[in-house]
Design a binder for these strands. Structure first.
Length: 278
DNA sequence: ATGTCTCAGTCACTGAGA
């Protein structure tokens, strides 16, 4: 199975590029973020014409997540247990949930498409929301793994955190001032390891950015960020045979500001792909 | 210069979000 994640920054603007890429890159399952539309506005036809079913969660012109798959999807879930809500000017516990998480099972892999809140500024209420979102996601993922020991879980998407200094190429981002690089955000990201989830792309692609701002010639200068990830349970990590970041998708006409991140998994029941141990 | 991009609301712009 070839599994990918891509923050598409409006699927209505980008569906031609996205479907062309799905077909040409021979991708089975694509988790998308920032589709920026409601369900009735999603361009289903080009996906279906190319052989992909789509499940999605979109509430407005903001956020929005989806999964396109040419393999059957089951157990579709909108949002995760304990996901916090947010409403500008209101921080109550019953704030409405945003369209930032959708899960589905493909084969024996539980796939999540996740769009973690940006944070906006270190002292903005959105930053507290971001940290609570990450902690709740790690907690729910740990709980799921305890209930499904050994199973393959993939948390994919735009985490809006730059985990390491070498993932930071944007010179305008200042430690202590900028979002995405603060110790609190990095701690919240690294806590997924304690929850049993590792970055399954990093061992195969140790360097490389997944996002370049549209402003300030960030892509031509290669001043990007690595903020899009595929985190996997041990049961998923054991099956990863290849991974890549498709930097070329930042080129050409009307690109997203993010590029796809891809992993290849061998089938759990396919002994031919595994070393034989006697 | 928040120097670019996207969408809503409304129809040439502003506001919001990233």
């Amino acid at each position: 199975m070839r599994l990918a994640t891509w923050n598409v920054n409006s699927i209505r603007t980008r569906h031609g590029r996205v479907v062309d890429w799905l077909v040409n890159a021979d991708v089975d399952v694509l988790a998308m973020q920032e589709i920026k539309c409601k369900p009735e506005q999603f361009p289903l036809e080009p996906f279906e014409a190319a052989g992909y079913d789509v499940v999605l969660h979109g509430l407005s012109q903001w956020n929005g997540v989806a999964i396109a798959s040419r393999l059957p999807m089951t157990d579709v879930q909108i949002g995760f247990a304990g996901q916090p809500g947010f409403e500008k000017g209101y921080e109550g516990a019953d704030a409405p949930l945003e369209a930032r998480a959708i899960g589905a099972t493909v084969g024996d892999v539980r796939v999540w498409s996740l769009y973690v809140p940006n944070g906006r500024a270190l002292d903005d209420p959105h930053m507290d929301y971001k940290l609570r979102f990450l902690r709740a996601l790690a907690d729910d993922s740990a709980r799921w793994q305890a209930e499904n020991p050994g199973a393959a879980l993939a948390l994919t998407g735009d985490f809006n955190v730059v985990p390491f200094d070498h993932d930071l190429g944007d010179p305008s981002m200042i430690p202590g001032v900028s979002t995405h690089i603060s110790p609190a955000e990095r701690d919240a990201f690294h806590a997924f390891e304690q929850a049993g989830l590792t970055d399954v792309v990093r061992p195969l692609v140790p360097e490389g950015y997944t996002f370049w701002d549209y402003k300030q010639l960030r892509f031509p200068r290669n001043e990007g960020l690595r903020i899009d990830f595929i985190l996997g349970s041990a049961g998923l990590a054991d099956r990863v045979v290849d991974a890549r970041i498709d930097r070329d998708q930042r080129k050409g006409d009307a690109p997203s500001d993010h590029v796809p991140v891809v992993v290849d998994l061998h089938d759990d029941d396919d002994d031919d792909d595994r070393p034989m141990i006697f």
